[in-house]
Amino acid sequence: MTDTLLEIDHLSVDYETGRGDLKALRDITFDVNKGEIVGIVGESGCGKSTLISSILRLTAPNTRFREGEIRFKGQDLLQSSERHMRELRGADISIVFQDPMQTHNPVLTIGQQMLDIQHRSKQSKPDKLAHAAKMLGAVGIPDPEARLKQYPHEFSGGMRQRIAIAMALMSEPDLLIADEPTTALDATLEVQIIERLQELQREFHCAILFISHHLGVIAELCERVVVMYAGAVVESGEVREIFHNPKHPYTRRLIECDPGHIKERARVLPTIPGEVPDLANLPGGCIFRDRCDQAMARCATEVPPLDQLKEGHHAACWLNHEEVTT
């Protein structure tokens, strides 16, 4: 067995809707190794959420897995039983969701919710509570025993996100999925959360799939990055390589739009002129064509393949082919 933990292999996912199939994910391929932090970057609507819910198999009823596999420790999750999936969720695979204000149940105490997620543990209730308090302490919540008795609305957004991280790490998962965990927070809190996540990752040795639309955070935290656009991977590779030598115009624009350093970042999403194509009615050729300032005739007719340009660096753009041919 290799040290690969999660393999997404040619995954295509559609949503069945009244106006035809919405092609949310198309031919996604990448993997996450044990103990590694991989970033996924892209604008809203690029398919990040579909990808996450597909990994956890918590998808909407109209979701259709058309092709490909999601292998976790070698086993295809799309073929697994619902029971097996439930055993994985919150145990081997944990998740921290985007909006900390909505992520906890409003009418149960934090302590109750942290008790509930330890439903697999055979420990006694006081032991479980002590474990919960220890985890709250680990993410930097002061006076954790007392705060276990409080309700979510009694915590600030930053605190709630740290609680969410504590809950996600409680089972010492092999894979932590972090879905834009800092988007809803302000910049200083973001730094704190990122640093805390790094420390905890070293402590718990889990792999992290870190989703963000913000390249600066990805650069700070991740070793490898996957750039997604309109439901497809347009570029992937080592963070350093991609930052210094982006091979897809979309990646280039993302870097240009980003203030570059996490501590100075502006609270706006990267803005690139133009709109994401309609996923229910995809145009032929390159999906980024309409927004690309370097588009050529070829881009309108042929879909560029995701080619390996270097060891571990892939990009889907005809410009690279020109370089190769000329």
């Binding site: 956890l56 918590l58 439930r86 055993e87 994985l88 969720r89 919150g90 145990a91 944990s94 998740i95 969701f97 909006d99 909505q102 992520t103 906890h104 149940n105 409003p106 509930d116 997620i117 439903h119 697999r120 969410a164 809950m167």
Partner: peptide
């Protein structure tokens, strides 16, 4: 449809509960 329900499911809490 609220996200805390999704969280509960993501932690493998039994559907009944």
């Amino acid at each position: 449809g609220e996200s805390h329900v999704r969280t509960a499911r993501a932690f493998g809490i039994a559907e009944r509960r």
